[in-house]
Every structure is written in structure tokens, then in C-alpha cells.
């Protein structure tokens, strides 16, 4: 199994624990991730003000993936969503494809429909499969309970993402967590948005969106909250202290990436999975893995 890795802007600079654990888990599961240094931004940051150029930038990445002949697999949900939307839009609007190709021609690139774009977590589920992942587990995590945060762009728009989750009742992260033997807490605010999309425009508003979920999880005694997106991480881990301060309270919600949980179940060590870089550390979990 081979896929082209789309790292995006944030993960390779700010979320090395996510990248490291994703690469290690893929290695153990027999997935070869191909790197291409010329892949960079997906175009998402420009969409709100200049969607024509955002689309050309996304099409550039799609054209590069096509040249590799590989599925394009992203770690960031915003990248995965933006690229999937661009593929969908361009495949259904030949006039838009013609325009972006005129802009890509001087770069020696050509977009053509048919590139498969997905999030790494969905790739693991759909291409490796839950049974194969379960069969590789060597360490039982049944003493732990994890609270998944699916985030928005991992699930929606459903008509473009195309499953496997129902965005109003998602299960895919829970299934992967359960593959390690761990329990899943599907808490009431499971589907809440992290607010990361408005952090730049209104910090208070973003903080109140993330804060409601943090307050709920703080009271539920989960081992950790589990993420699949670096933007959600900015809110739940990076902003956790600032949000608590604004709400005049204290939170201790450990935050981990799904690939770190899977990695522990697959027999990798906390060091190999980059847990040293987690700031809201899952102390109970790490204590169990002290050698």
C-alpha cells in the first residue's frame, strides 16, 4: 500500500508528535508514505477572501498527486477537506478546470479529474481495514477511556467526503480506538466545533466554542481527548490554559492524537510516538508505559 503524504503547513512545524506517530503507525501497518517536497499549502487559508486562487493552489496539489499516480493522504482535516472539495468542484465544473489549467500550465502541471483525496484516518480504515489493524495489536489498552473529537472537516460536507461516517452520528474514530481494547466515551458535546476557524477573527468567540467541550470533558475523567486535526489541537491543547483563564476555571484535559493511541496498541513506545511533545500530557497513560 502506497500513498502520497500531504503534510500541509501546520503539522510539519507545530505538530511533530502527530507526524511522527502517523509515520510510525503506517510503517507498522505496511503503508508506504511517499514524500514530495514541492507539496505545501492546500489553499484553505485563502478561501474566505479569494477562492479562485485557493482553488488553483489546491489544483496544483491535485496535479502533483496525479503525476505520482497515488492517492493524496492528509493529516490535517482542513487540508483533506479543502483538497477533496477542490477535486469535487473541478471534476464537476469543466470551465473551472480549464481556468486553473491555464494558470498551472506555466508551472508544468495539469489537473485532470480522478485524484483520490482522503484523510489518513479514513485511509487506514478503508485501505488497511479494521480487522488487519486489530490483528497487529500487541498491547491491550482496556484500562483506558478515550474521548474522540472528530472535528468538522473530517466529516463534512458529507456529500463530498462521502463517508464512512454519518456526520450526525460518527463512529470511525471510536472503532479505531476500540481496536486497541480501550473504551470510548461518546460524550454529549461530541459533535461540537473546536472554533479554530474563527480564532483569527474573534478569540473570545473561538474560546467559548472550545471551552464548552473542555469543561464537559474535564468533568468526565477520560484518559485523554483524541484528535485528528492540527487546527483542533490549536484550540484544545494550545489554547486550553488561556480558555480556562477566561472562563475563570481550571482544566486538566489531556490531549493526544489518534495515531499516538493506535501506536501504543501496536507496541510502539511513547518516545517513538512523540509523547514528549504533548503539552497537555496524558499522565495516567504515560505512567502505564514507564519501562
Amino acid at each position: 500500500m502506497k500513498a502520497l503524504l500531504f503534510l500541509g503547513c501546520t503539522v510539519p512545524v507545530r505538530n511533530l508528535n502527530y507526524e511522527l506517530s502517523a509515520r510510525k503507525v503506517c510503517e507498522v501497518l505496511g503503508v508506504e508514505l511517499v514524500d514530495d517536497q514541492s507539496l505545501a499549502c492546500c489553499g484553505y487559508p485563502l478561501k474566505g477572501t479569494d477562492q479562485a486562487h485557493a482553488l488553483t493552489i489546491a489544483a496544483r496539489a491535485l496535479a502533483q498527486a496525479r503525476a505520482h499516480g497515488l492517492p493524496l493522504v492528509a493529516l490535517c482535516s482542513a487540508c483533506a477537506g479543502t483538497l477533496a472539495e477542490a477535486e469535487h468542484h473541478l471534476a464537476h465544473h469543466p470551465e473551472a478546470a480549464k481556468r486553473v489549467n491555464a494558470e498551472l500550465a506555466p508551472l508544468g502541471l495539469e489537473y485532470a479529474p480522478g485524484v483520490r483525496v482522503t484523510h489518513l484516518v479514513r485511509y487506514l480504515l478503508e485501505d488497511v481495514g479494521l480487522e488487519a489493524i486489530r490483528a497487529k495489536m500487541t498491547r491491550d489498552l482496556s484500562e483506558f477511556t478515550f474521548a474522540p473529537h472528530y472535528g468538522c472537516h473530517y466529516l463534512k460536507p458529507a456529500e463530498i467526503i462521502g463517508g464512512p461516517d454519518d456526520p450526525e452520528a460518527p463512529t470511525s474514530m471510536g472503532e479505531l480506538i476500540e481496536a486497541t481494547g480501550a473504551k470510548v466515551d461518546n460524550y454529549p458535546r461530541l459533535k461540537d466545533c473546536c472554533g479554530g476557524g474563527v480564532l483569527g477573527a474573534d478569540e473570545d468567540l473561538a474560546g467559548s466554542l472550545a471551552g464548552a467541550k473542555l469543561a464537559e470533558l474535564n468533568a468526565r475523567e477520560v484518559t485523554a481527548m483524541v484528535l485528528v486535526c492540527p487546527f483542533c489541537n490549536v484550540m484544545y491543547e494550545g489554547q486550553q490554559k488561556a480558555i480556562a483563564k477566561r472562563m475563570e476555571t481550571k482544566f486538566k484535559v489531556p490531549v493526544v492524537y489518534l495515531t499516538q493511541v493506535l501506536g501504543l496498541g501496536l507496541g510502539l513506545t511513547p518516545d517513538e510516538l512523540g509523547f514528549k511533545l504533548n503539552r497537555a500530557k496524558p499522565k495516567a497513560l504515560l505512567a502505564a508505559f514507564k519501562s
Binding site: G48, Q51, C152, K156, P157, P167, G195, G196, G197, V198
Partner: peptide
Amino acid sequence: WLCSSCYSCGEVCPQQVRFTEVLTA
């Protein structure tokens, strides 16, 4: 400028307005 682009509106819209995209426009 306050839309968080969570796409929740689009999932519940009976008319397929796709408000996130309309607001982007």
C-alpha cells in the same frame, strides 16, 4: 467573518442551500 466553516448548516438544510459556500461567495 465569524463563520467557523463547520458545515453543520449544510448538513441540516432541506434545500441544499450550502450556506458555508454561499457565505464564502
